[in-house]
Design a binder for these strands. Structure first.
Lengths: 241, 241
DNA sequence: ATCGGATATATGGTATACCACAGATTGGCC
DNA sequence: GGCCAATCTGTGGTATACCATATATCCGAT
């Protein structure tokens, strides 16, 4: 192997636009947009100054973010990070369920026995973290588990479409986790899903994945009101000033 | 009613960027991109001249189109309309099936009896066009039928996500239709789907929608080779020159 | 005649200047 | 003192000029 092989990917059609998109996207996902105190405003010129580039690539990145639903661009008003409503979030979970349940069905057809053995091994390895209530570790493992199912389906579009939704769920997860009961139940669900996959039962695997995801749906439906209420309280307080 | 009511929506935060996006998108969907003779190249400057605007809004529109997968932007080479591979198309159909089958399940929960009665009435009204082999009319009715199911699910995200896929399928449909056998079979499928919806059987409705869509999948899998082969022939001819 | 490299050209990427409009500010009039 | 309007400021939208590089062209050396 020559040194060229290691150098080749460098600066290969690198563009500021794409880089800016990644940076902004990461930054938005990083911030807790549901904090009522959060500053949701983005300023093209300030960003340009911060990143030491012109507004042009920033605007292209913002346009993409807007199209992806992460920000809203209001002409002559500003660019604002989008706060998802409870309804939006529930719809994302439903759509996620649709995609992953289809993926599970395909997995029973397309995945190799080896793939499924590795998936089971992975799930068992990290099940202890749920019991230990190490939520950080469990969360990561949980994400990987579901992404693996989408991956093993062999349908890249299912995976990418779900990834788009997953982006928006990052901020939600921060507020959904924390109940170790859900984590423990999740572990059981995962094992039952793997059982169905390994028995190559498409109908069963599809159903279990769907029901697993819809449990998250129902959980959010019951508990998510809090954030919006805080927002309403804040608005009311502002009006009374 | 005063004249204001009719004028109000005019120029309401209209932007060239969005307009250009719509125009380009419509133009791309209009052209038969699978014609081997088709010119897939787009030139920012020529478009700017044609539309009498600067490159800036065009570039933003192109960036969005690229993100949506309709075009591919290659730095210092050009912008090209994307030709979907057979695999891409099959994946779109699978993903579509995932979304619409979930939608059907939700319809059995959320739709009113009146909604379903209207859906049946619509389907019956247009079933004759399939028999008459009036493919233009049947195709439109077919589209409306499936969009209605997504609509009645009550989950806007399912609908919009599916719409995104549908965009890409326009060009494919032109080459998939034409076999009246499929149209007739489709009519039967639709009626069976409506039966399941009206009996409020979520599992059955979901399954029938999935199987219906996957029949399109299998059909394309069997017949789509033609276009790519033509492309290969053209390439081979070009090489031998 | 053929090959190689220098130059020309075309393309998308980037920077910058200016525009139009929304909101806030301020000034003057009543 | 309050209200309205002219103005000022800040924002995203648009146009334009310039840059870097990939490709094509052409000329000269062999």
């Amino acid at each position: 192997m020559s040194i060229d092989d290691k150098l080749s990917p460098i600066a290969q059609s690198f563009t500021l636009k794409d880089h800016t998109f990644d940076v902004l996207r990461a930054a938005i996902l990083e911030m807790d947009i549901y904090d009522p105190e959060a500053d949701l405003r983005l300023d093209e010129r300030k960003l340009a100054e911060r990143l030491n580039i012109s507004r042009t690539p920033i605007r292209e990145a913002l346009a993409r973010l807007a199209h992806e639903g992460l920000v809203q661009i209001v002409p002559r008003k500003g660019v604002f990070v989008c706060r998802k409503s409870r309804k939006d979030i529930l719809e994302m979970v439903v759509t996620w369920a649709a995609l992953e349940s289809m993926a599970a069905r395909l997995v029973t057809i397309n995945a190799s026995d080896t793939d499924l053995k590795m998936l089971r091994k992975f799930a068992m390895k990290h099940s202890s973290s749920a019991v230990r209530a190490d939520l950080e570790e469990y969360s990561d493992a949980n994400v990987t588990f579901h992404q693996t199912i989408l991956e093993l389906s062999g349908c890249a579009l299912l995976r990418t479409t779900a990834d788009g939704l997953f982006t928006h769920m990052q901020a939600v997860r921060r507020r959904t986790m924390g109940e170790s009961d859900r984590a423990r139940r999740s572990v059981v669900d995962h094992m039952e899903i793997i059982d169905a996959l390994q028995s190559r039962d498409g109908d069963l695997a599809s159903r279990r994945v769907r029901e697993h995801t819809m449990r998250l749906h129902d959980h959010i439906a019951k508990t998510w009101s809090r954030v919006e209420n805080i927002g309403l309280l804040r608005d009311a307080a502002a009006r009374s000033n």
